[in-house]
Design a binder for these strands. Structure first.
Lengths: 221, 221
DNA sequence: ATTACTAAAAGACGAGTAA
DNA sequence: TTTACTCGTCTTTTAGTAA
């Protein structure tokens, strides 16, 4: 295994073009690039050479460095790791929390025709009149924040009988394979550790869960 | 900037799925993964947490770790760097060396009809009867080795007038924008610091170079 | 089993220096 | 200017230990 410090140094050389051919490098230029002292940069180059990751030819004012096949292999392994990270885990999130009771407000809002019709049209879910509330575990709150980067379905606000109903956003997901959707009210500053879900049937019945039960919400795509 | 050691640790967590949600990790499991002591692994986690790269919830037997948005940003930056490395520098090589005189053997072989016709057909180069020999700089020898992974054009061996002519392989390239090709005899153990090139015209004339002159060979694609 | 502290050992760092 | 050595210092590591 290559030391992390050496790896970063090798990466810097690769970025300069060290994979394509000889690259002009000096201890000082490398040092600046990596925010280390020229002495340490020199040591890194020596270390990489000893590990057969690079090949060097010294010149009067600097040196020419090329990344060897072994060095390239290391770089490719890193590249492959990052591709694995972002190509398989990307856009697939798991939120973990526990089922809690809501304030009953959800039930009211979902029954309002102006919302229900949009859920049906835009999400394909004709919602059971009630919400399934999950209190997220502390680490899942971090994951929840990442969901903001996904494509949410806009639920428009409207006015009905002189009452104004605000907009919201929704994100399809599933619990135990059963389709549902996260609903987040538009403007209101909702507590970020609580998630409100809607679904075609009463989720408590479908899943057979009660208050305090552990719940895992899957968001894909 | 994140320390190289922490970065590697963060990468390991990402590989376990830390970007998608909470991941069960213990100092010991991480230690094994990274070939460090559990104490150091513990310190890395603390360090990453202090840098707001991960979020943790402690359990009796281990801990649940999630990579935060800031941590993900760091991972993406790394990923982007590696993509830059392999998507722009991939399959584009520069060999540097100096022009030397050959033994005159090249001139003979190239004149042999069995070879000349293949150069013309397979490479699109009707060669000037003579080779352009380059002695590679030490660092370029490393780059030359990488060329072995590219797609070479096979030049078949044949028999003519009871004489056997061996096969060879060729790789199109250019010098100063002028098209030529590297020729490497098949079986013979050719010195690896010397490259023999053919071209439609006499390269020494086209380039106006003489023995000892620095030459840069570009191999693309 | 865990985490994370303390303290001794190991290792890395950068200033100075020579070539 | 370079590279790379030595040397003193400081950081990091790991073993041991407690919770």
């Amino acid at each position: 295994m290559i030391a992390p410090d050496d790896l970063i140094c090798l990466k810097a050389i690769a970025l300069l073009g060290g994979l394509s051919g000889a690259v002009s490098v000096s201890s000082q230029s490398l040092a600046q690039e990596l925010s280390i002292s020229p002495q340490t940069a020199s040591r890194r180059l020596i270390s990489l050479e000893n590990a057969h990751m690079i090949s060097r030819t010294m010149g009067g004012d600097g040196q020419y460095v090329t990344i060897t096949a072994a060095g390239e292999e290391n770089m490719r392994a890193e590249y492959a790791a990052y591709r694995r990270i972002f190509e398989t885990h990307d856009r697939h999130y798991l939120l973990e929390g526990e089922l809690i009771s809501g304030l009953g407000e959800g039930r009211y809002y979902i029954s309002v025709e102006g919302y229900a019709s949009q859920f049906s049209e835009k999400l394909g879910i004709t919602p059971y009149p009630g919400t399934f509330n999950v209190k997220l575990s502390p680490t899942s709150i971090e994951t929840r924040r990442k969901l903001d980067a996904m494509e949410w379905t806009e639920i428009d606000g409207f006015t009905d009988h002189d009452r104004t109903f605000g907009g919201a956003r929704a994100l399809k997901c599933s619990i135990g394979g059963y389709a549902c959707a996260i609903i987040i009210p538009g403007r209101t500053h909702y507590p970020e550790d609580i998630i409100e879900l809607i679904s075609a049937e009463r989720l408590r019945d479908v899943l057979g869960t009660d208050d305090g039960a552990a719940v895992i919400i899957e968001v894909t795509r």
